[in-house]
């Protein structure tokens, strides 16, 4: 059986905190493992922070819509915003550095999302960015390279 919730927020950090907390409660109520909850939380925070900080050029409030679907073996996150076109799949991975002084401070969020999700799809639909990410449910014992 699938369980689904629609969550909406405006493009500010207070709403982001509320939405992540509501998503967390939804996942807890469906008994997802702490590792799965962490991974979905991380993906939500990274993607939504990017939208809040960079998607809109004006100071007006804009709605961002999120659908969280819990399936038997995976969680699907679908995110829609009407901000400027942004395809996270087109962003190159940050260059690996050996020295802390050479290392760039930005660009980590999308890298973490890519490493956390099983698959990721982006398309532009009627002036909206649509991002669909699949996170495999993790058991309590988990040994892969993903978080």
């Amino acid at each position: 059986m699938n369980y689904e919730i629609l969550l909406c927020m405006r493009n500010n950090l207070q709403d982001l905190t509320r939405l992540v907390s509501e998503a967390d409660q939804f996942m807890q109520s469906h008994c997802l493992s702490p590792r799965t909850v962490y991974c979905v939380n991380l993906v939500l925070e990274e993607v939504l922070t990017n939208i809040v900080k960079y998607a809109f050029d004006d100071a007006s409030a804009h709605e961002i819509q999120l659908i969280l679907t819990i399936k038997d073996s995976e969680v699907i996150v679908t995110c829609e915003d009407a901000g400027r076109e942004f395809d996270p799949l087109a962003i190159p991975s940050p260059e690996a550095r050996d020295s802390i002084l050479e290392c760039e401070v930005g660009g980590l969020g999308i890298h973490l999302v890519r490493k956390t999700v099983h698959s990721m799809e982006y398309f532009r639909d009627r002036h909206k960015n649509v991002l669909i990410m699949t996170i495999k449910k993790a058991e309590r014992q988990h040994n892969s390279d993903t978080p």
């Binding site: 990274e46 922070t49 890298h111």
Partner: peptide, 20 residues
């Protein structure tokens, strides 16, 4: 319990500043 890229970034900045 939880760290995101924002947390990592703050650690990186602290590391750079202490090294400087």
């Amino acid at each position: 319990d939880y760290i995101s890229s924002a947390g990592l970034r703050s650690i990186l900045v602290a590391g750079k500043n202490s090294k400087a």
